[in-house]
Simulated assay, not measured.
Amino acid sequence: MSLYEIAFSGQLVPGAEPEQVRANLAKLFQADAQRIAVLFSGRRIVIKNGLDGATAEKYRVAMERAGARAEVAAMEVEEVELAPPPAPEPAPVAAPAAAPGRLKVAPRDEYMAAFSEVDAPDFGMAPVGADLQDERPDPAAPQVDLSQFSLAPVGSDMGQAKAAPAAPPPDTSHLKLQE
């Protein structure tokens, strides 16, 4: 499938007024004056790329109606061939063990030759679904002496602070109403 790009380099269709074309393109692209000024900078600006032929032609026609001469160019799509996956490295060959439960590994290259005399434990593979964590005993509940505590009967006072008694009403005997 061929892909196209639509570009604009500031050229107008014959007889078009530059200010009217700027206004038309601003309305067409819903862009501000600064973006429209970039379009008319004289450089080739790619408006949209990755278009099929019909869509690129629609863009070109719309821009020509606005008064701008657009350029439709085929995009160069580079075919990339993916590299085959790397071949799996051969598994290290186990030499006869020096001691039971120990594995002796032959070095695969000169860099690994420095580790040829390393004595490593021979860890086996657990079957699928096996629990790999060591067994732990259940934690013991702490022994707490609660004998000094008791429960109060239902509805009893639990020691809430008592409200202060209300203050006596003020003495108003000396006050008189005037008529």
Rank of each mutant, 00 (worst) to 15 (best):
L3V: 05
E5F: 03
I6A: 07
F8R: 01
S9F: 05
G10Q: 07
L12S: 10
P18V: 10
Q20M: 12
V21C: 07
V21A: 10
R22G: 08
A23E: 15
N24C: 03
N24P: 04
N24H: 15
A26D: 01
A31I: 09
A33K: 12
I36L: 10
V38C: 00
G42S: 09
V46K: 02
V46C: 08
V46M: 07
G50T: 06
L51I: 10
D52R: 11
T55R: 12
E57R: 10
K58P: 00
E64C: 01
E64Y: 06
R65Y: 02
A70M: 10
E79Y: 05
V80S: 02
L82S: 11
A83R: 06
P86R: 14
P88G: 06
E89N: 05
E89P: 07
P90C: 03
A91S: 08
P92E: 10
P96F: 02
A97L: 00
G101T: 06
R102D: 05
R102F: 11
K104F: 00
K104D: 09
V105Q: 03
P107S: 07
E110T: 06
E110D: 15
Y111H: 12
Y111G: 13
A113C: 02
V118K: 08
P121L: 13
M125L: 15
M125P: 01
G129K: 07
A130T: 13
D131Q: 11
L132T: 14
R136W: 00
A140C: 00
Q143L: 13
V144T: 11
L146K: 09
S147E: 05
S150H: 14
L151Y: 05
A152Y: 02
A152N: 14
V154M: 11
G155C: 04
M158S: 09
Q160F: 12
Q160K: 08
A161N: 03
K162I: 03
A163G: 06
A164L: 13
P165G: 02
A167I: 01
D171Q: 07
D171A: 09
H174V: 01
L175R: 12
